[in-house]
Design a protein around this nucleic acid. Structure first.
Lengths: 176, 176, 176, 176
DNA sequence: CATGAATGAGCGTTCATTCAT
DNA sequence: TATGAATGAACGCTCATTCAT
């Protein structure tokens, strides 16, 4: 995970992973994982479990869809902030396009669910939930790469901007 | 370009490119391009020139920042729609992280410029232009990959949704 | 070493070395050596250690500079005689000009040291030690190639001729 | 010749030669020469003709074998001095071992002839002419490479030292 | 005399993976 | 749990050379 997250997926060869882990043979990697797909799947599994628990615990306590959306954005950004290497590792794998099955990790399904419930409850205006959910998901999943270039980025402010942005984009029309 | 766009950057080896082009030797690729970076740079150069001209011509005729933003979204999506392979090739290269100099092709600078001018002109509310521009850029640059999974996606409708979304997110507050 | 020594440095490709060693893949060469320079360095290191020990042990027991020079010529020729392949491998590498750092293996420094000490002790006449040392060194380091063309060459006689030659060339003028 | 002489034989590829000559295609080389051996042979032919004429003209006017030997050493060194690039090109080709037929260019035959005539005339002592000739030849043919490392080397002094060295090594014993 | 397009073999090197302890 | 030896395929790239003008 550290190798993928720090040097990119392309650098995550058995040789480099073994070197980073202080192993004198790549054999041990093959011993623990059936093949490279298996190794990568384990990495992804680990990260999506962590972020899923972190975000799920926070979103779960919200009752309104609007509150859940706000909390989703804030907690995803917060998780990225405190676990940059793992998150970049995850995004590297997803963008590399290995194991298409793993794409679910970055799909906008959960967000789309929130949006649909919000529309049903009259909290959100009448937009296409797929487009909105995809846009929301994309607004955060590039952050690990952005942080690489500008590590000093103020992520709390970034999250506040996103919350405002999508509140305005989703709320029901109030005027005339 | 076709190989990168159809099979991904990782598959774009000299052998595969030569096979696709009907060449009996990879030698001719090395004959025309100094090295692989040179080849990739040529691909990127070509696509950014095309999309730049397409989008630039349309955005250039707009006078208001709001009009430019609408047109930017619509024309980028329209270009992606009619040149899917090339656009996916471009995104593949950018995401692969080869040639960091090429990152400009996907940076949000031009959009940020539009946003700042719109704020100065009082057309837009007071948001962080960098965050907004990044979000706008990300909302479209994942489309080539989305199209791969769902080629029948209605891109005109997608563009209309994005236009509405970012109009609401950027417009000045009107209610008391 | 056998491949370089028998077929020349230009023929010493990974493929040929692997074939000669009975390996089914060149991969194992890369496995043991960082790159080709590393492999070549190991070859050179081995040979110069061997010849250094052989010649050093014999020259070291001599007390006079004249005796050391005689013994140097005799023992270098003797070593070449009994280890032809390794010595030709060494000369191939040096002449190929790879790894300029290795040039020390063929430089005339040690011989020049003997000559200077001999002049200081009044054993040798007043010649340019650099020119003499270079000539002495050259007189032996072409022998591996000479042996290739005429393997039946009588090296003991060759050494005796060289000893006489350089005795006459270095000794103090005796006649009035 | 310039490419071989300046950058070494290994660098003398068709591509580099064409670049050096300002040609836009290597095709012209293939047009003039049957193959690479033919090209190299032409280079060698040219240089050995030049040095042969230069040295031959000077040695030819000497009547004694001793005078011919002195003049041979002086004129070979003088030619090396004034035509360094060509001479290094010649030595590069010979040492590279291409075209074994060309080895005659560096063989000690002519010198051996002088030595034999000198012995027959009683000018030289009774040494092995082959060993002496080889040593003499080697004493000068490494000079082009030596000059590369130390271009400021005083070649006139070098030649004088060699002349003295081999006079002493060849002259008849005068003392008891 | 000169060009650019095209070729096939070979280069050193790296890949994930397997074998034998 | 851990090692080093060994594998075969593929990588980007360069070689001298040929084809068609």
């Amino acid at each position: 995970m550290q190798v993928i997250g720090s040097d990119g997926y392309a650098q995550a060869t058995y040789a480099r992973i073994a070197a980073h882990a202080g192993l004198s043979s790549t054999r041990l990697i093959s011993y623990h994982f059936a093949d490279k797909d298996d190794l990568v799947a384990a990495v992804v599994e680990d990260v999506i479990t962590r972020i899923g628990e972190f975000v799920g615990a926070r979103v779960g306590v919200e009752v309104t869809a609007a509150g859940q959306l706000d909390t989703y954005l804030e907690s995803v950004v917060a998780y990225i902030s405190r676990d940059r290497v793992r998150m970049r590792a995850l995004m590297e794998v997803l963008l590399a396009g290995v194991l298409p099955d793993l794409a679910r990790a970055a799909d906008a399904g959960p967000v789309e669910g929130i949006l649909r419930r919000g529309q049903a409850a009259g909290e959100f205006r009448d937009f296409d939930p797929f487009v909105m959910a995809t846009t929301i998901q994309r607004s955060v999943d590039g952050l690990p790469f952005l942080l690489e270039g500008t590590p000093e980025l103020d992520l709390e402010a970034y999250a506040r901007e996103l919350v405002t942005l999508f509140r305005l984009a989703t709320k029901v029309d109030t005027h005339g």
